[in-house]
Design a protein around this nucleic acid. Structure first.
Lengths: 121, 121
DNA sequence: CAAAACCATGGAGTTGAGTCAACGGTTTTG
DNA sequence: CAAAACCGTTGACTCAACTCCATGGTTTTG
């Protein structure tokens, strides 16, 4: 599909999609027509974009993500310690989720306080 | 305590602390000595800073946080719908945590794949 | 087939969250 | 008491992640 459709279906702007592609997060093919230079994105780009959103919610930067995608499925044990890298990310994400859940809890408490009788004198 | 101590004990830079104070996230008193203009932070600032870190991990912006802190404990039902505001934040944070957990799961899977026998041919 | 809709590229601009540097005061310490 | 360590203010700067704009080519559509 072309960028306009991907934009509509993903909810991301064309600029964002091109930006992600420059950063190596998504990929396209040159497209069938030789007359133009339109990109052609595979259907699975939508899945990738959803995973990117997940990763961002978990606090990953785009640079981290590019590294993860590039290194991990490239199966290259040439000096790059994938296990250590993954373990570090896992620990980070777990810590972040724990913090977010603490915050969620305090939001719930604030909500309950608002719902309760406002003054007791 | 003065800013240097708060910085050491919180792990945040002095500049960050002053930045947070300008944004209204933490507060200080003018300090006892009239000869200087040093700020004096209460012990509880450390707790507040920890809560700020929680909130940031949950994806809250500093502006949102300032609004939350300012509006919520000010008990001002003058047009500001605290319940709706809180409900919206709660939904956001829950969605974010759900996404982060999906990502964590995929990290775990990637980790397991690395640990498993690399090739089976 | 012309107007509207779409696409690419390059580069500048924006926003949020800090960070740094310079300058001049104040405390602490050896 | 002087040097070192600390503090405040102002304003410029950085970095990540987008976002906008101008220009010019390509499809689609009424």
């Amino acid at each position: 599909m072309r960028i306009g459709e991907l934009s509509r279906r993903s909810g991301l702007s064309r600029d964002t999609l091109r930006f992600y592609e420059r950063q190596g997060l998504i990929h396209s093919e040159p497209g069938a027509e030789a007359t133009n230079s339109y990109r052609d994105y595979p259907e699975e780009a939508l899945i990738t974009l959803d995973q990117i959103a997940d990763a961002q919610a978990a606090g990953m930067s785009i640079a981290d993500l590019a590294m993860l995608m590039g290194q991990l499925q490239a199966a290259d044990p040439d000096g790059f310690d994938g296990e250590a890298f993954l373990d570090a990310r896992i620990a980070e994400v777990e810590a972040r989720i724990a913090r977010a859940e603490r915050f969620l809890e305090s939001l719930h408490q604030a909500r309950a306080a608002l719902a309760a009788p406002p003054v007791l004198l």
